[in-house]
């Protein structure tokens, strides 16, 4: 009688052990502040949770076009038409880089123009924000808000600006960290894409 009972204990014990979560490497993207399942680490190159020995440090594959921290060195978005196609720029804010500036001009003769800017970044690293300013780079015209259509990818966060702009006028878009989600400074960086489009409102 004892042997079958002990056998049942072993079977149930193993059964309970089998109910522990089992997450394979590379199956989840890094969460906020490089969160990963126990025993895994965020690979800051691929944004995937991997085995610790395979986790690499943060890189900026699309290049960070420095210097771009003041109005004279702001990166040009490119030539936009009154109703333009979306222009996407990819870059990153590395640790210690507190600002990326982008400048664009609204062509002459554009009536009832509006600019739409979408900033998409990873949730794994420091949060970013985008602000529309006047040509001086400091006078705020519009701050970003939550996008009407959130990112289909839960690992990406998007912030949006939609604001009227005047013809024959230059503007600057400021991309900068918010200070939150930076892992106490250990993940104070992020990759992002900035999409800019002119249209009418």
């Amino acid at each position: 009688m004892r042997t079958p009972t002990l056998g049942l204990i072993v079977v149930f014990g193993l059964g309970a052990a089998a109910c522990r979560p089992d997450v394979a490497y590379g199956t989840y993207e890094c969460g906020p502040e490089v969160a990963c399942p126990e025993g895994q680490q965020c690979d800051e190159t691929s944004d995937l949770c991997v085995a610790p020995p395979n986790a690499k440090g943060f890189t900026c594959p699309d290049g960070d076009l420095e210097p771009d921290n003041d109005i004279t060195t702001a990166q040009p978005v490119g030539t936009l038409t009154c109703v333009s196609t979306a222009r996407q720029l990819k870059s990153c804010l590395e640790n210690g880089d507190g600002l990326d500036l982008y400048k664009f001009a609204v062509p002459d003769g554009c009536a009832s123009s509006a600019v739409t800017a979408v900033l998409a970044s990873s949730i794994a690293y420091e949060e970013l924000k985008v602000t529309l300013t006047a040509a001086d780079g400091t006078t705020v015209i519009a701050a970003d808000t939550e996008c009407a259509s959130p990112s289909p990818n839960d690992a990406r966060v998007t912030r949006c600006i939609s604001a009227p702009v005047a013809a024959s006028t230059s503007y600057v878009l400021r991309v900068e960290p918010t200070g939150s989600g930076a892992c106490g400074g250990a993940c104070a960086f992020n990759r992002y894409s900035l999409t800019v489009q002119l249209g009418t409102h």
């Binding site: 979560p21 997450v23 199956t27 993207e29 969460g31 969160a35 399942p37 794994a124 839960d154």
Partner: peptide, 17 residues
């Protein structure tokens, strides 16, 4: 709900943790 052997295309969130 959390165990997987395939790519989920989801981030590891506090809810999953």
């Amino acid at each position: 709900k959390v165990s997987t052997a395939d790519f989920t295309n989801r981030p590891w969130t506090p809810t999953l943790q």
